[in-house]
Write a protein that binds this DNA or RNA. Structure first.
Lengths: 231, 231
DNA sequence: GAAATAGTGTCTCTTAGACACTATTTC
DNA sequence: GAAATAGTGTCTAAGAGACACTATTTC
């Protein structure tokens, strides 16, 4: 083990790794925030879960640790959003933040009143720093964009789910309603899910059959010349 | 101006900003590399254009400067790819690289024999460091994925172009051929280009009409339930 | 029974891809 | 004329959206 030559006392931390954990909460897209530990007895401000990065550690591993610290488990999806440079602001914190998107299946309950809580992406606490707000928006945009490239909708659901729940996730991410019959027809054609011999009754109405994510090999290359989608 | 309290002599640089400049070169997707200035008389190894970042400077601005340094102009598109952490390797360089994708219109000639050259993305120099190779692949993947979200194909062409050239860009980025009639029909429907009263003869064959990028407002929301595209 | 939710059958209209052409240039 | 490239008209099949239904539950 080599001795370090220089150990500056007040050197700025290299950078921060922050994680935007998203989960469907009460038919909204929820973002998990935690209170920064305040020095005095008063409670700190809300913030994205984050930590200062030790040089040399793998970025994704670091993001995993941040996520573990708040949900006590692994997110079902973890992907880098990008690097965000804050204005060279006050003393605390580093100027550079590497942000990650983490998905959490529906139904993960956070005990209320604690230092961790879900906020709707459209109703973030007013004191949330501008940079973190920007990161949250980038995370939501990324989740939206990933949807038709990776099966991330299933990462926001429990292993078994009803087709209505799945459709609700799509509508949540796309921000608009979807035609039910078309949705199921396309789902059928894509061979992404398979029904299991179980039904769930949600109070009133006919019980829904449960499905599980079970992608089969794609048939043939799909149509590709599409200029819509631009914007 | 405040005096800095600590100026560690051998502190690692905060991070590096690298730019992957892509351009169509001889019907391939070209990546611009430059030689690292070698200490002795011998020529250095090929590398992505990059620089060490001064803290506090805006990331994108820094990427702009890197690009200017090699093409002596602005790329037609510039977007962050992400942060890449190298193995904590040898002494030189920082562990963290923020990479950017830059697009350069076809026809930018780099004088051969110099310290800057286009390489096909499939034929990168063998000595290119693994991390940089990874960044190039991420850049290509990003360009591919952005294609149907933003009109980046036009950023790889001169302001006026033929439809065959445009189609070639699409085929280059998608890595597969496109049906000519379908391509033009979809282009027509999307109202993305307009013909100008000019033709270009390319040697043999009928001269092609020139077009310019002139997007009109989208008509109506397009169809959206699509589970293909996954994978 | 009404209300609520799950799930399906069928029709229409759009459109991607295939095919086969016509048009205009160089040689 | 042949060869090469540009550009178009038409047919077909896939599939997205609309509509109207049937099915099964709670109240």
């Amino acid at each position: 083990m080599r001795a370090r030559k220089v150990t500056p006392v007040s050197a700025a931390p290299l950078f921060t790794v922050a994680v935007v954990l998203l989960s469907p909460v009460e038919n909204k897209l929820g973002v998990l925030l935690q209170r920064t530990p305040a020095a005095g007895g008063a409670r700190g401000r809300w913030s994205l879960p984050q930590r200062t990065q030790q040089a040399g550690e793998a970025l994704e591993h670091s993001a995993q640790r941040v996520a573990h610290g708040v949900i006590h488990g692994s997110p079902s999806w973890l992907e880098q959003i990008g690097a965000f440079a804050g204005r060279a602001g006050r003393s605390a914190g580093s100027q550079l933040t590497i942000a990650y998107l983490g998905l959490v299946p529906a139904g993960i309950i956070i005990p209320p009143g604690g230092d961790t809580a879900w906020f709707s992406k459209d109703d973030l606490p007013a004191q949330l720093p501008a940079l973190q707000r920007e990161i949250v928006m980038a995370a939501v945009g990324m989740a939206r964009g990933r949807m038709d490239q990776a099966p991330i909708a299933f990462r926001l659901l429990q292993p078994t789910f009803t087709l209505s729940e799945l459709q609700a996730i799509y509508e949540l991410l796309m921000g608009k309603n979807v035609h039910k019959a078309s949705f199921r027809r396309a789902l059928q054609a894509a061979s992404l899910v398979e029904p299991i011999d179980e039904w769930r009754s949600e109070g009133r109405g006919r019980p829904a059959q449960l499905y599980r994510y079970a992608p089969r090999r794609r048939r043939n290359p799909r149509r590709s010349v599409r200029f819509d989608r631009l914007e």
